[in-house]
Amino acid sequence: MDRVTLRDGCLDVMVEGLTFANGLLLGGNDVIDAETWDSSDIQHRKALRRLALLAEDVGLSDADLGRHPGHEPIPADRDTHVVMQHRLRILFPGCYVVGEEATEHDWWAAIGSPPGSLIFSIDALDGSTLYESFTFGYACNLLAYRRVKGNENLLMFAAVMNSSGFVACYQRDEQGALVGNVYTATDIALGTDTDDSAARGAAIGKRLVSITDPVVLDGFRADTVATNASDPARRRVIAPLLADKDLYVSTLGGAPAALGLVLGGLAALVCPRAQTTYDTAYLPILASLGITIYTMHEGKEGFTLGLKEVLGFFDHLAGVGGAWTTEGVTKPVPAFVAARNPQFGAELRRRIIEQY
């Protein structure tokens, strides 16, 4: 399989996931009225297929929920995961799908997959609180792996697509990143319903732009910081930043905000705790663009991450509940600060590290 086919298929699946999730916010999962249903209506046929698919899903077991590494998932988390998993299996027959809302069975199947297998790790709705509370600011994260031998994997593709339609991608062995907005793809606006998924992914792929440096907007401000610290424990870690009257700090960070480092005016992104790989699918993108990434090892001396070091965290599967996987811990990505200006990133790290 060539990289263009992989990229276009992944983009289609991410649009599929966000389209479905956005539809749920608008009541798009309602039961169809059989008396008014037109059998020739594509959208109704697709809705029926989705309803049948979700009805067959056994969901996450109590054991799966007990191993869940983050906040308890909302129904849309699992439903969107199932929709994306189904589409991936159609586009890439024989593939394996894991991620934040995957079952233990799915994880073990991927871990035991033979060489040559294609494995996808997804966080269908990154930022569930933003999705459920604000209806914006969330993202869809996707990682694509090729199993090479034994239980060794290579990260081939990483992408983050936010609820505004912006997308950034990393492709292995290609310089820089691919960026774009799915709203700008001809006849492929987010929410357009079509069964021609290959055409949809290809249309988006053709409109992506290759960049080797972050896009610098006019009026860029060097004092903007985003951090995923909406909970009290993480806010305590970043307290020095919140107290700084000269900084503009948002606690709604994570993957949705990371695109601000690539395409917007964000100066720095702070991740105060260790994360999963599917939560930080944007890190290979940032590293490929040369954005400085400083680690914070719970009070230990940190170091700078380049693309090689980032791929060291990503070239394996890190399953939910690291104790029962054979491929490392659940959250291999350490706390970090990513910044366009290395000096600014180092200063932020110095202030935060004292809180550990």
Rank of each mutant, 00 (worst) to 15 (best):
L143Q: 14
T224D: 08
D64F: 04
L261M: 11
P240H: 06
T186Y: 03
Q85K: 14
D2F: 00
I211K: 06
V225Y: 04
G137S: 01
G17P: 01
P114M: 03
F344T: 07
K308N: 13
G94C: 08
A47S: 15
E104A: 11
M84C: 11
D106P: 02
S117K: 07
P115N: 06
C140E: 00
L241D: 04
L88N: 10
T224R: 14
L48Q: 14
G321A: 10
L155T: 12
V333C: 09
A318S: 15
T80W: 01
T135A: 13
W37T: 04
G328H: 14
L217C: 03
T5E: 09
D196E: 05
E298Y: 11
G180Q: 01
M156W: 01
E152K: 06
D33K: 12
A233W: 14
T36K: 12
F157H: 09
A76I: 00
Y170W: 10
Y145N: 11
K308D: 15
A198E: 07
C95I: 03
G99L: 12
A55Y: 06
N151I: 02
V167R: 07
L26R: 10
L54D: 03
E104C: 04
R67G: 10
P272Y: 11
S197H: 07
V333P: 03
D8F: 00
L208E: 04
P284L: 11
V329H: 02
Y170V: 02
A267K: 03
L259W: 03
L305Y: 06
L178Q: 10
L24G: 00
S61Q: 08
F20M: 05
V320P: 03
S250E: 03
T330S: 15
F313N: 08
K331E: 15
A158N: 04
E298N: 11
G254L: 07
S164A: 08
I32R: 09
R273E: 14
V98G: 14
P75F: 02
T224H: 11
R7C: 07
V237Y: 07
L348G: 13
D193S: 07
A34R: 12
P240Q: 11
T184M: 13
L155D: 12
T276K: 15
E298F: 10
V83M: 14
A159E: 06
V270A: 07
D33Q: 11
S133M: 09
S39R: 06
E56A: 15
L247R: 12
L283G: 01
L348K: 11
E132A: 14
D2W: 00
A110E: 09
G70V: 13
L269A: 13
S197F: 05
A202E: 13
L125Y: 00
V249R: 01
L88P: 08
D173Y: 04
L155R: 08
